[in-house]
Design a protein around this nucleic acid. Structure first.
Lengths: 201, 201
DNA sequence: TTGCCCATGTAATTTGTTACATGATTTA
DNA sequence: TAAATCATGTAACAAATTACATGGGCAA
């Protein structure tokens, strides 16, 4: 039996299958700006971060190389005015636009990946004291509320610009998502209180 | 300047710092049963999965080796009655219990890791038609509701057993979490409808 | 009696992080 | 003028997945 590497040869597409992180980086470029790796990292930190973990610098650099090799982006060196070190900036190609569009439209809808450390620890409640459970939840609640406020602020900053229509939409989603995380922490705190009342009346 | 590998040498602890996934596997063992790699995978699939991605077989096997090497678990081969292939089963040690307890109690509370593929695609809404956005959201909604129902059923199955008090607590959390994901999808769907109405009245 | 799922792993590969290197620019 | 920060990467390592190998039991 001949092995095939599950490629969409059909219709002569010939597009290499990329991991989600590549599409995320290409997606950042799909807004049309010419950006450096550093720019991309910063931008992904303040936009993607709400619903998609932000890759490290080094990974962004290697994704950019991969995208260029695939013909989805081109790069050029730009000399800085003030004598700063030169930098390499990337721009999406027509093929890149086509590829990321096709991905966004046609890829199967995969379940989100969640690694919820705080919940893992509470799942191990038999190893904790009530006070420690409350502590973990309180810190998580704090994080969720901080994220909610940031998302809320960013919605304000983004909603005026028509180019940000869809990013604004997802920021609204994030605002609600982190509000829900906060409320879920409160609900669990209440559940724990109830348990404790049951244990020592 | 001498470099130190950020270890808790203090108090002569000498415990090797483990990645979260190791703690997850050790946590599964902390309920006291003697389990094989296969058992652990199945069990993590139906319990951890709601809030913590379930590692692959091969990773579970290598985590078990690491835990044994660290002295946190021991293993033995057991011969099967019916002549089936022998298997290796693992049991947590006292040191392992102490280590996972300390981790659960004292590790810093890290933010959950989220990679929300569907949101990433909606963030790129400028590449999609309204119909395609609704499709992505509908499928995500479907997933969320499926998970919610499963969590709900598992709460029913687990709440009677006192040993499952805390797992039941996190299952309740999961039930609410996936209900919220479902509602968030609906809310975003409504936002998109509104956008569309604005675009072509 | 062949194909499929259970069960147990190892090997090869990919993905992603941390540590390191380098130099210029700002700020204290 | 020293330290922090911006900016750009590379190298080494760790985490995690997929592919592969193996053999028994069971159903068609």
């Amino acid at each position: 039996m001949v092995k095939k590497k599950a490629v969409d040869d059909a219709a002569g597409a010939e597009r290499p299958a990329l991991p989600a992180t590549s599409w995320a980086v290409l997606g950042l470029l799909s807004f049309g700006e010419e950006l450096s790796g550093y720019d991309l990292k910063k931008w992904s930190d303040w936009s993607l971060r709400f619903f998609y973990w932000s890759p490290s610098f080094s990974q962004i650099y290697s994704e950019l190389k991969r995208l260029e090799k695939a013909g989805y982006a081109t790069s050029r060196m730009v000399a800085q005015e003030t004598g700063t070190r030169d930098k390499r900036v990337y721009r999406i190609t027509d093929e890149g636009m086509e590829a990321v569009r096709t991905w966004a439209r046609e890829a199967p809808v995969d379940p989100p990946v969640l690694k919820h450390g705080p919940m893992l620890r509470l799942w191990l409640g038999h190893l904790l004291e009530g006070e420690q459970m409350r502590e973990v939840l309180a810190r998580h609640r704090e994080f969720a509320e901080t994220m909610r406020v940031r998302a809320e602020e960013d919605v304000e900053g983004a909603k005026a610009n028509e180019a940000w229509t869809y990013p604004t939409l997802t920021l609204k989603w994030a605002e609600r998502y982190y509000a829900s995380e906060r409320d879920l922490a409160d609900a669990m705190l209440a559940d724990i209180e109830e348990l404790e009342r049951g244990k020592r009346p």
